[in-house]
C-alpha cells in the first residue's frame, strides 16, 4: 500500500555541509527555484510584446497585477503601494508553489512548517520594524486597546501582546496545515483506488473532486496569506 506521508520526505540532491551546518540542496530547494523560474518565465514572456489590446497571456499577468494593486489599495490605502513588490512576490511565490505541488511527482514546499514559518516570521519582523520606524515609541500604543478602563489594562496588555505574537504562528500554521492535509488526503484516497478493484471507481471520483478542491485551496491560501500580510502592514502604517 502506498504511503501517504512519503511525499513530504526531504531528499538531498547535492549534499553540502559547511562548519557542521547542513546546507544541502534538497528537493525542497529545487522546487523553490523552479517556482521562481516559472514565475519569471511567465511574467517576462507575457509582457515581452506590450500591446494595448492584450493577448491572453498578457491579460493573465495584468489580472495578477490589478488583483494585488486592488488588494493593497483596499486594505492599506495609497501609502501601501510602495510595498507592492513585496506583496506581489509573496503572492506569486506561494501560489505557484502550491500549484506546482499539485502536479504528479512534484514536491510541495509550502507543506513544510519550517518554510511557512520562516516566511511568516520574516513578515512579522518586517512589519514590526516598519511600524517602529514610522511611529517610533508610539507604535507600542498598539498594545493598549481603546475604551478599556485603567484597572483592566494590566490584564489586557499581556493578552494583546500574546495576540500580536501569535500572528506569525497562526499565519504559518494555516498555510502549512491546509497544504499538508490536502495532499495527504489526496494520497490516502489514491491508495484505495487499486486495492478496491472494481469499486475503486468511488475513491477515484472523490480524488478527481479533491484535486479540483485543492486548486481552490492553493489559490485561497495564497490569497489569505497575502491579505493578512496587507492587514498587518496596515496596522503598522496607519496606526490608530
Amino acid at each position: 500500500m502506498a504511503d501517504p506521508i512519503h511525499q513530504f520526505e526531504i531528499k538531498k540532491i547535492i549534499p553540502i555541509e559547511i562548519n557542521n551546518i547542513d546546507l544541502s540542496f534538497t528537493n525542497s530547494s529545487l522546487f523553490m527555484m523552479l517556482t521562481v523560474l516559472f514565475i519569471s518565465i511567465f511574467l517576462i514572456s507575457s509582457i515581452k510584446k506590450k500591446k494595448i489590446i492584450p493577448t491572453r497571456l498578457q491579460s493573465v499577468s495584468e489580472i495578477f497585477y490589478e488583483f494585488i494593486a486592488n488588494m493593497i489599495n483596499d486594505n492599506i490605502g495609497n501609502k501601501g503601494q510602495k510595498f507592492f513588490p513585496l506583496i506581489f512576490t509573496l503572492f506569486t511565490f506561494i501560489l505557484f508553489g502550491n500549484l506546482l505541488g499539485l502536479l504528479p511527482y512534484s514536491f510541495t514546499f509550502t507543506s513544510h512548517i519550517i518554510v511557512t514559518f520562516v516566511m511568516a516570521m520574516f513578515i512579522f519582523l518586517f512589519v514590526t520594524l516598519i511600524g517602529i520606524m514610522m511611529h517610533g515609541f508610539k507604535f507600542f500604543g498598539l498594545f493598549v486597546p481603546k475604551g478599556v478602563p485603567m484597572a483592566m489594562l494590566p490584564l489586557m496588555v499581556p493578552i494583546e501582546i500574546i495576540s500580536y505574537l501569535s500572528r506569525p504562528v497562526s499565519l504559518s500554521i494555516r498555510l502549512f496545515a491546509n497544504m499538508m492535509a490536502g495532499h495527504t488526503m489526496l494520497k490516502v484516497f489514491a491508495g484505495f483506488i487499486f486495492s478496491l478493484g472494481l469499486f475503486g471507481i468511488a475513491p477515484l471520483i472523490v480524488d478527481v473532486a479533491l484535486t479540483a478542491f485543492e486548486v481552490l485551496v492553493a489559490f485561497l491560501q495564497a490569497y489569505v496569506f497575502t491579505v493578512l500580510t496587507c492587514l498587518y502592514l496596515n496596522d503598522a502604517i496607519n496606526l490608530h
Binding site: L142, F143, P145, K146, G147, L228, L231, N234, D235, H240
Partner: peptide, 11 residues
C-alpha cells in the same frame, strides 16, 4: 484583524 477594539470607520 487588528489588535484593539473596533474603530469608527472600520473598512
Amino acid at each position: 484583524f487588528e489588535v484593539g477594539f473596533k474603530k469608527k470607520n472600520d473598512k
